[in-house]
Design a protein around this nucleic acid. Structure first.
Length: 386
DNA sequence: CCATCCGAGGACCACTCGAG
DNA sequence: CTCGAGTGGTCCTCGGATGG
């Protein structure tokens, strides 16, 4: 069998980068641990086929295994880090892949707009700064989203409310991706401990990514929080701790975006006028049902506006969180709906339009969405029906 | 050593239904 | 009417099994 002739040092580097033990790899590749160890020392060489499988499992392009030394991997993440002053030592491989995947989609979409003469700058990107008035920014976001009494009324449920807002944001030209996994791999779930969302600001093709593994309540809040980022024109990775929204976040930008998000979802004036001090917390929460926001958001608001004590907040918050965590996730669903939701409907339909017009190859389009060509065609049919 | 097949697991939306 | 819970349809990845 012909040997691949890879650089043994690269095997070790890639394995450690992927956070895998020799034993994990041995199991995944169905090969003896000694053999893989020998690849790493250079005593043995894998076959081409084995090298291919190895690269696949280590999530690196095959050529990486032949390089003389590890490649620089700093590109977009370095920028994000400087923009966000939180000292995050390292990002997980999963996160990096999601970020790169999103950047590719954003780049494609920007070029698509340019090629079709639709690339006009969105007026709201970077319209304000963190020094701006919270209320003013919040009103502007509401206006762009068309978030008014009517929209709230038309939402059939809280999750429907979120999807309606997402739809409005996409119509305004913002790509919104909501996914709880890396690419289409259900075995690689994203953790909310690492991030709840991120935003890639851009004048013509802004992109918001929401970690779909989060609770409904948190997703809604993160979504609006990321929009606030765009309104001040800042990219960044966010881990919006719902809890920290009521305390003084050390980061001025994050604090500002949290305040704006709360103001968008439930304006302080409305909140104050509806609240009745002689009612219990639970009774009061019932009075805000038509706002279609979850108890968690209401609790944040109540605390921010000093309607409840810190202890009351902590207590009510804790019971909600455990309830949300215990709730069952139904399995099933239609992949033809899932795919556009994960990759942004705006991007998906633009991509399909581009392939139909012959500007983009089916192969490339399918690769960008991480599906087979056949699947992409089915999704295209599905979307045309509606 | 390797190609191929097959079942398990699980993501997510859209819609319906029934209780309050 | 409102709202949450439940359900159906579809795909991708993984890993074990099989047999060349």
């Amino acid at each position: 069998m012909e040997k691949a002739g890879i650089n043994s040092n690269q095997v070790r580097w890639a394995r450690e980068r992927a956070g895998l033990q020799l034993s994990d790899l041995s199991k995944a590749l169905q090969l003896a641990e000694d053999k893989i160890a020998a690849w790493e020392t250079g005593e043995e060489q894998p076959t081409f086929r084995q090298a291919q499988k190895l690269a696949e499992r280590l999530r690196v392009p095959l050529p990486y295994l032949f390089l003389p030394s590890p490649p620089e991997e700093n590109s977009p993440i370095a920028d994000l880090r400087t923009l966000r002053n939180e000292a995050r030592a390292t990002f997980s491989l999963d996160f990096k892949e999601v970020l790169n995947d999103s950047l590719q989609k954003q780049n494609w979409y920007r070029e698509y707009l340019q090629n079709t003469g639709q690339a006009s700058p969105l007026e709201f990107i970077g319209k304000y700064s963190v020094e701006s008035d919270v209320k003013t920014v919040a009103r502007d976001i509401q206006a762009v989203l068309g978030l008014d009494e009517e929209l709230r009324k038309s939402a059939r449920s809280k999750s429907d409310f979120l999807s309606k807002l997402v739809q409005q944001a996409e119509e305004a030209g913002i790509l919104i991706l909501i996914s709880g996994v890396v690419k289409n791999n259900n075995h690689r779930k994203l953790t909310v401990e690492e991030f709840r969302g991120f935003v890639l600001s851009d004048a013509v093709a802004p992109l918001v990514f929401i970690n779909g593994n989060d609770t409904e309540a948190a997703k809604l809040f993160t979504f609006v929080h990321e929009l606030a980022h765009l309104w001040v024109g800042a990219s960044g990775v966010s881990n919006v701790e719902v809890k920290s929204a009521v305390e003084n976040d050390f980061d001025q930008l994050e604090r500002f975006c949290n305040q704006v998000a709360a103001e968008v979802l439930i304006p302080a004036e409305d909140f104050q006028s509806i609240w009745q001090s002689d009612l219990s917390l639970e009774e009061n929460l019932q009075r805000y049902r038509h706002y279609k926001v979850s108890d968690l958001v209401l609790l944040i608001r109540a605390r921010q506006l000093r309607r409840i004590s810190s202890t009351e907040f902590q207590q009510a918050y804790a019971t909600r969180i455990s309830w949300y965590k215990n709730r069952k996730r139904s399995s099933g669903g239609n992949f033809k709906n899932t795919l556009p939701a994960r990759n942004s409907k705006l991007l998906t339909s633009a991509l399909i339009a581009a392939t139909l017009e012959g500007q983009t190859l089916y192969r490339d389009a399918a690769r960008m969405l991480n599906v087979k060509v056949e699947t992409l065609k089915k999704v295209a049919d599905h979307l045309e029906i509606h």
